[in-house]
Computed example of a mutant assay.
Amino acid sequence: MHRWTDLAEVPTGFGPSVVTLGNFDGVHRGHHSVLTRMVTDARAAGARAVAVTFSPHPAQVHHPDTAPPLLTGDEDRLLLLERTGLDAVLMLTYTLDFARQTPEEFVSRYLVHALGARTVVVGRDVRFGWENAGDLTTMTELGAKYGFAVDVIEDLAAEPEPEAPLGRTPDEEHLSRVADPLHRRWSSTWVRELLTDGRVTEAASILGRPHRVRGVVVHGDARGRELGYPTANLSADAAGMVPADGVYAGWLRRLDLAPDAADAVLPAAISVGTNPTFDGVARRVEAYVLDRTDLDLYGEDVALEFVARLRATLRFDSIDELVATMHDDVARARELLVAAGGPPAGW
């Protein structure tokens, strides 16, 4: 897949193409379904399939104080987009100057002249151009003017699950029944809601894979090592929305290693929170690799993949009580990960 960040990188005469545009945060199952269908249609028409997306997210530029947390960083977003079979992604730098383009300027410059669009795939709620003045009607009118068809995609909804996902507690099952309507539209917003509640198993059912947070392993307080459970601490600038505070079963994926290398993916108990037992303040994401005290992961790029929530963060009255609970967490994490049948394929 070609990755472009500027029009100058797009080959002269590129096209014909089938183009879609969006933020694709998380590249969830709804995104994946639309993009893979678009790729199939493009192949049948002898065209190339291209996604146009933006970095940073427009909300971070226009409303930085209230913009939602992103589910994935740019590198993971590109990797996930590549998995759909796209021929190219044009990731444009989003600035206030960029946003001042009229709808026609944007379509003409990027979709028509740069990418040679013959079909533009959009949702009914598409908005583009200065102050989001462009909508579906605008796109259709521009298509008639510039010679491209507009393919409108309908919202895709999740099917009800035949049984509770692995690791869901009775309380989580109750919340699922009362809070999530059947056939709700797949969306990044829905995933954020679930992660905010720590419901990572349900988030995975929408994403089509476990949610992950990616960052470099840095030095912490070494307190876990002193307690017999050394942890890999992620840097504060790790990419990916951090779920609710708590302890989770998951996988630690070492991205600097080949996917099939020994120890490339390791079972882990993941902790998110401030370590209240030790009066911590900073919120941290750290992982203990089950039954391993011999690993030196400092400086490595890793991804922590969340499979199931074990419990909320607790403040313990003694170190002995904390260690006993950690022992139980590790045992339960091991059981859940064995039952899961091993880690998902890497990407």
Rank of each mutant, 00 (worst) to 15 (best):
E193P: 08
E193F: 13
E193R: 15
E193A: 14
L194S: 09
L194W: 09
L195G: 11
L195N: 11
L195A: 10
T196C: 03
T196R: 14
D197F: 10
D197R: 13
G198L: 02
G198W: 07
G198T: 05
G198P: 10
R199I: 14
V200H: 04
V200C: 06
T201V: 11
T201D: 15
T201R: 13
A203Q: 01
A204T: 11
S205H: 14
S205K: 10
S205T: 15
I206N: 11
I206L: 15
L207I: 12
G208I: 08
P210V: 07
H211G: 10
R212F: 04
R212E: 14
R212Y: 00
V213H: 05
R214E: 14
R214Y: 05
R214Q: 14
V216P: 07
V216S: 12
V217H: 08
V218Q: 00
G220D: 06
G220H: 04
G220K: 11
D221F: 09
A222Y: 06
R223S: 10
R223P: 09
G224W: 10
G224M: 06
G224F: 06
R225Y: 05
R225F: 05
R225E: 03
R225G: 13
E226I: 04
E226C: 04
G228E: 00
Y229P: 02
P230G: 09
T231K: 02
A232V: 01
N233F: 02
N233G: 02
N233P: 05
N233H: 11
L234Q: 04
A236H: 10
D237G: 03
D237R: 00
D237I: 03
A238E: 00
A239S: 15
G240R: 00
M241D: 00
M241T: 06
V242L: 12
V242W: 00
V242T: 15
P243R: 01
A244N: 02
A244D: 06
A244S: 09
A244F: 02
D245E: 13
G246S: 10
G246W: 02
V247E: 01
V247D: 00
V247F: 03
Y248W: 02
A249Q: 10
A249E: 12
G250Y: 08
G250R: 13
G250C: 12
W251H: 13
L252M: 13
R254N: 14
R254M: 09
L255Y: 03
L255R: 13
D256Y: 03
D256R: 08
A258K: 11
P259V: 00
D260T: 13
D260S: 13
D260Y: 00
A261D: 08
A261M: 04
A262D: 07
A262P: 09
D263P: 09
D263F: 06
D263Y: 08
D263L: 14
A264H: 07
A264K: 11
V265R: 09
V265W: 06
V265T: 15
L266D: 05
A268P: 01
A268C: 04
A269T: 13
A269M: 12
I270D: 00
S271C: 06
V272S: 03
G273S: 04
G273Y: 06
T274H: 09
T274Q: 11
N275P: 08
P276R: 08
P276C: 02
F278N: 08
D279M: 08
G280M: 06
G280Q: 03
A282T: 14
A282R: 15
R283W: 05
R284A: 14
R284L: 15
E286Y: 13
E286W: 08
E286Q: 11
A287Q: 03
A287D: 01
Y288Q: 08
V289G: 06
